Amino acid sequence: MAQKKVALACSVCGSRNYTIPANSNRTKRLELNKFCKYCGKYTLHKETR
């Protein structure tokens, strides 16, 4: 059985650059500062479902 995945979307441009495994223990949506190749800088990326 394959793992379910969720995407991390850039809060500036909205592009979904990263995917991570879904975790049922996580109650809040994950927010990380990651590099966005479309914006060319580190921006806040939020978990999408």
Rank of each mutant, 00 (worst) to 15 (best):
K41I: 07
A2M: 05
K41P: 00
A2G: 06
L44K: 11
T27Y: 08
N25Q: 12
R29F: 05
Y38Q: 07
C39K: 03
T19L: 02
K46Q: 15
Y38M: 06
E31A: 15
I20N: 01
G40Q: 07
G14D: 00
K5M: 07
K28D: 09
C13S: 03
S15F: 04
R49Q: 09
A9M: 10
T48M: 15
F35C: 02
C39G: 04
R29W: 01
A22E: 15
E31P: 00
S11I: 08
P21E: 11
S11T: 15
I20R: 03
A9L: 01
V12L: 14
N25W: 09
S15R: 10
K46W: 01
N25A: 14
A7P: 00
Y18T: 08
L44T: 12
N23D: 13
E31G: 12
A9F: 01
R29Q: 04
A22W: 14
R29E: 07
T48P: 00
C13T: 04
A9T: 13
T43W: 00
V6P: 00
R26K: 13
K34R: 15
S11K: 13
C36T: 06
T19N: 08
C10S: 05
Y42I: 12
Y38I: 11
C36E: 02
F35D: 10
R16W: 09
G14S: 11
L44P: 01
S11Y: 08
T48V: 12
A7L: 13
L44I: 09
R16T: 11
L30C: 09
N23Y: 01
G40L: 05
Y42W: 05
Y38R: 10
V12R: 11
H45L: 09
R29N: 15
K4M: 02
A22R: 14
F35V: 09
S24N: 10
V6D: 04
V12S: 15
K37C: 10
G14F: 05
A2H: 11
Y18P: 02
L30R: 12
P21W: 02
Y18M: 15
T19R: 13
M1I: 06
T43V: 08
R49F: 09
N25Y: 11
G40W: 02
N17E: 15
Y18I: 10
C10E: 04
K4R: 14
L30K: 13
K4Y: 07
H45Q: 05
E31S: 13
Y18W: 14
Q3R: 14
N33Q: 13
V12D: 14
C10A: 07
H45M: 04
A9Y: 03
N33F: 11
L32P: 00
T43G: 00
A7Q: 14
I20M: 00
L30S: 06
T19S: 12
N17Y: 04
N25K: 12
C39V: 05
L44R: 10
P21I: 06
T27C: 06
V12E: 13
C13H: 05
